[in-house]
Design a protein around this nucleic acid. Structure first.
Lengths: 218, 218
DNA sequence: GTCTATAATATGATAGAC
DNA sequence: GTCTATCATATTATAGAC
């Protein structure tokens, strides 16, 4: 569980800082949706944040719904791609501890690297117009399924007690990781430390008397 | 960990079904805020759900902010009171396993009993006007502190490895429990089973080879 | 305790100049 | 690619009848 460090996680799909029209609008939209909510973010607010006027936005997007749909998509796609990348890189023969730790760290790092998009996704998913939500749902479900299969793979390697409910376990782990968006403070504990703590508790629990889970895989 | 069952948890402060003015407005407001968000819920929507006209709401509340402030307060207070009640009832000499299981079950049951209020609280907290949020924050922080002290008590009884970060642990447990609001389906797994699974994983982890955590405390 | 009517303002979206 | 101006509609909140 020490092979992958936070420096090893590249950022091929990280949010670009480009200040051109479309990307600028999306970045500001993600931030405003996250902080103010979907309905409370007016196109005048958004335009002002981009140093534009409201009418100009319609050159780049056909509607407010089109903007929020793209913000939602990016919020999942960034994380999904990164988690898939590091787990694929580890390969089939990796240990369960290594797989889970790498996936947890990739999810957490990506989540906080693109925090405006990922936090907006989680916060406003339930608020967007039903058509937008229905269009977005399959991508969410697909990513949840990716984690379910990851947990099942680890189970088949004998990593878990047969008493555990695997469907619940993947919901627990995702919910736990995503909740970091609401309380994480960079100056208190690093993402790498939080990832290690989450992995350790998930596999061994709070009461584990083994020295640490890091030494576990050595 | 078998002493407390889901039937033992009374509901002294559960949301009343009264259809009188003020309570009717609050119940409908909680439901609409939860499903549509804060800004997207208009006072016309709310009045229509109460079979009223928009103007009539101002007889019961002085503003939309006053309504949402009360919805937020109830969302935390219901859960807080119930968790405090069952942990106080168990007393100081209870085992760590019993304490955590009872608190987890009380939190989960209360969360889903008053789901419109609790889910609204979690979903719209970040969207309400800053003054409302600041007024509500101390109650949230106090409840989080209650869990931190509970975890610390269990730690002093020797329940946890000294390697674990107790501050993170309470955030993990709260985030994990609250995430059930987004995916819980009553026909798949009961709240009691989810509570047992959460407690077991939190204390012993997914890889625990002990038969079950229930037999643990016998 | 609920109604109607209305004031004052904000919203998403469009049309057409530059 | 951005602007101004505007349409049609929706919003919170108030005043006063019943």
């Amino acid at each position: 569980m020490q092979k992958i460090t936070i420096e090893d996680l590249a950022q091929p799909t990280a949010t670009p800082d480009k200040t051109t029209g479309r990307t600028l609008i999306l970045n500001n939209a993600a931030r405003l949706f996250r902080t103010k909510g979907y309905a409370a973010t007016s196109l005048r607010d958004l335009a002002a944040a981009c140093n534009m006027k409201a009418g100009s936005i319609y050159y780049h997007f056909e509607s407010k719904d089109a903007i929020v749909a793209e913000v939602l998509r990016i919020g999942v796609a960034q994380v999904y791609e990164e988690v898939r990348r590091v787990t694929t890189e580890l390969g089939e023969q990796a240990s369960s501890d290594d797989l889970i730790y790498a996936a947890v760290l990739a999810h957490l790092k990506s989540l906080h690297d693109s925090i405006d998009y990922t936090s907006a996704n989680i916060r406003i998913f339930g608020q967007v117009p039903p058509e937008v939500r229905q269009t977005h749902l399959p991508l969410r479900t697909e990513y949840e399924g990716y984690w379910q299969r990851l947990i099942e793979q680890c189970n088949q390697k004998g990593a878990f007690s047969s008493q555990r409910n695997l469907r619940l376990a993947s919901f627990f782990l995702l919910g736990l990781m995503n909740s970091t968006l609401e309380w994480f403070q960079p100056n208190k504990t690093s993402i790498a430390d939080i990832g290690l703590e989450i992995t350790t508790i998930f596999i061994h629990g709070m009461g584990d008397t083994v020295n640490t889970s890091v030494q576990h895989s050595q």
